[in-house]
Amino acid sequence: MRKFFEWLDGNFGIKKPHRRFLYRSISEGVNYFFCLGGIAFTLFIMLFASGLMLAIYYVPSENEAFASILRINNEVRFGWFIRSFHKWSANLFIVAIILHTIRVFFYKAYRHPRELNWIAGSLILILAFISGFTGYLLPWDQKAYWATEVGTSMARTVPLLGPFLCDFLRGGEDITGATLVRFYAIHVLYIPLFMCLLLWAHFHLVKQQGVKGGL
């Protein structure tokens, strides 16, 4: 096993550039609150994995969506578990990000030279919110429908562009199957893609700039 990994790393050469990062001494004043970002990332991985699994059975269509949710919950082995896992991880993901944001704020870690990383982190938070909002429609039940009705109606209050924005989000005047497919595509394709890019940028900047310790 060890030999295999050594051979792999011999070709990839991924260990060496990260050695300095992984074995660095951490700045003083670091405590367990600094784990919150890592917790959020762990939750993201959990969401990614359970989302990959749910995508096997979920059908993003007007007539089939709710039936496929019932099938996942009642017929698929561990389906109820994976769906709950995805849902709870999603909730905790938002909580962890917000707590992480608060930590960064109070430790003044958003200041120069880390301002770009603060921006990247904020974008990740916004993406997490969008992901939560689009994912909420996918069960295609009454709660999902009306929550989306309310949420997309808010876009209508934007000056000038409001009505266009609302139609754009809904893929039409009303919430229909078109909205469902739209939200599904955003939820499973667009957001994970941009999230991965942003997370890479976020971690790269941490690696570049180190962790700011102390109050």
Binding site: A49, M53, I56, E75, V76, R77, F78, I82
Partner: peptide, 14 residues
Amino acid sequence: IAAGVYLLFAFPSR
């Protein structure tokens, strides 16, 4: 455990 759950989940029940 994760691999086991995944296989049980993904294998068609019908």
